[in-house]
Every structure is written in C-alpha cells, then in structure tokens.
Computed example of a mutant assay.
Amino acid sequence: MRWTTLSVVVLLLVTGCSGGESSVPGGTPSAIDQLVAKAPVAANVPAGSTMARIKERGELLIGGSLDAPLLSLQNPGTGELTGFDADLGKLLAKYLVGEPKTKLVTSTSETREPLLANGTVDVILQTYTITPQRAERVAFAGPYYESGQTIAVRRGTTGIAKPADLAGRKVVVGANTPAIAAVKAAAPTAELVEFGSDPECLTALRQGRGEAYVQDQALLIADASQDNELEIVGEPFTKDPYGIGIKHGDEQFKQFVNDWLREIQKSGLWQDVWRNSIGTVVSGPPPSPPVIGSAQGS
C-alpha cells in the first residue's frame, strides 16, 4: 500500500482503549469494545492442537510492543494497549478463547524468533515483515498488512530526497530488519548504524548519530504523529508485507489464523480496526487487505 505521506495531516493519536471510564458498566463502550462485541469465535478447535492449549489457558500470549503509537501503545493511565496490531491481537484472542484476553511480552527484532521457538509467546504481532529468510525459522500467517521502507530525517535536513541520496551517509536502521537490505540495495556506500528498537533508532537520529532513519512507513507515520522534528521523505521504496509470526512447523495453527484473517476481512472488522488506529492519521478509506498467502514466505 502507498500512502501520500507528505500530504497526510496528523490529526490525533489513538485515544480509545478498552479500559477506563468508557468500559465501566453504564458507560459508552469504546471503539475496540464495540468491535470485540461483534467479533467471531471459532466454531471448532481441534483437540490436542496449539489452539486447544491456548483456549484451555484462557489467554493469548503475544510478542509485541508497548511503545508503538497507532500500532501497539500502552495507555499509561489504564495499562491497556491500543493500536492496529494490539486490537487485532484482542480479536484473535476472542476467536481462540471466547474473550479478548491477551498478555503482551515485549519483543524486539532480535528476540522475536527465540520467543516463538521456546514457547514464551503464541504469536508475534509486531509489524513483522515476511521474508523468505525469516520463513526458514518462523511460520507466517497472512500477510495481514503491507507497508514499505521509507526515509525519515530531522526536520530541516537538506540533500536527502530519495534512496540514492543516502549514499555515503550514516543511516540509522533497526537490527535484523528489512531496512538493512533495502539501504544496501539502494545506496551501497551508505554507512549503517544499527539499534535494537524503534525508540533507540529515533533517539540516535535526534542525537545526530545518523543523518537519516530508514524504517517501515507505518512506524514512521506513528512516530511523526508524536514528534514534530521528524520529517518523512518521499514514498516507500520497498513493499513489506506484515505477517503474524507462529512457531516454525505449526501448519495447523497457521491455517487457523489465516482462516480468522479471511473472516475478519470479509466481515469488515479488519477495515474497522484500521479506521480506529492508522486511519485516524491517514486520510481516505481503508486499503484493501493483502491477499493471504501472497507474500513469498507466507
């Protein structure tokens, strides 16, 4: 999906959450409460499956973020998570256990795969780009969304208007992210400076430890909604399909999650989740969800 980034008017951050006054008896249900109320529950959960174990536990364990605005951000007052990924996680939990009960385990680009492999989490919902290389270690349901690598700079920076302009410059990237290969392909002489998380990358850019930051456009738009000094340059120069990470080899669970994705896409719930999160700062109607299984590695 392509967004006209520089014409996007940042209107507001996601303020709805499933806790607080909006969800107490007699109060007005929040946006996510309303979506959860009409979200489906799986009709059949095979005995002995991953899904059955999650249902018996009564809680979906998710690897994700606490600090990604519009995607998965923790409300400091209520402790609730809001955003596109966070709300999808609640809907998946309801599909599995009958209630939107989730527990988030903070993960980074470097810890996601170990968390899945050792069973600490059931899924990763964290702008996890599907690649053939990752698919050798992780099973991916989806894709459920498509973004792309984009350039951000400190406001007022000149001389960087396109990927080729990164040549010979220090460029901040996330460790173990598609940005590394994308920058190397677009500007082979760029000097990459790697950090483990998006907040660390942003801090490095602000401190001048790099002249540009390359990251998923979805994350950068969320970052720019909170930081007026961050300027997004141009359009995405790659296509990055996001997948829901699942333990490698668990094809039954992967199919189950894919069936759920198809169901919420068909019913319009996916579009509603987008409107309540990313759609609050991006003008226009919801994009068409990517076709399940369309990404190499999914």
Score class of each variant (00 low, 15 high):
274 W>R: 07
229 E>N: 12
187 A>T: 00
278 I>C: 03
288 S>P: 05
233 V>M: 02
191 E>I: 14
183 V>A: 03
286 P>M: 05
280 T>K: 03
294 S>F: 09
198 D>Q: 09
269 L>G: 09
282 V>K: 02
187 A>C: 00
276 N>I: 11
240 D>M: 08
189 T>C: 04
251 E>G: 02
250 D>F: 14
235 E>M: 05
273 V>H: 03
275 R>V: 10
231 E>V: 06
186 A>Y: 00
257 V>M: 03
272 D>A: 14
249 G>W: 04
273 V>R: 05
241 P>A: 10
200 E>A: 10
192 L>Q: 04
210 G>N: 07
238 T>W: 02
200 E>W: 01
276 N>W: 03
218 A>V: 14
222 A>W: 06
182 A>K: 05
267 S>I: 10
233 V>L: 04
194 E>Q: 15
187 A>Q: 03
182 A>L: 01
188 P>L: 07
193 V>D: 07
181 A>D: 01
246 I>N: 07
279 G>L: 01
267 S>W: 13
262 R>L: 11
261 L>V: 11
278 I>V: 15
220 L>R: 09
287 P>M: 06
180 I>L: 03
222 A>H: 01
232 I>N: 02
211 E>R: 04
207 Q>L: 14
211 E>I: 13
270 W>T: 12
250 D>I: 06
272 D>P: 03
267 S>N: 12
233 V>E: 00
260 W>I: 05
285 P>N: 06
193 V>A: 13
293 G>L: 08
280 T>W: 00
229 E>D: 15
187 A>L: 02
236 P>V: 04
242 Y>K: 12
214 V>G: 06
274 W>F: 12
237 F>K: 13
248 H>A: 15
215 Q>W: 00
247 K>M: 12
277 S>M: 01
199 P>N: 08
288 S>C: 09
185 A>E: 01
234 G>Y: 01
274 W>H: 04
245 G>W: 12
229 E>I: 07
241 P>M: 10
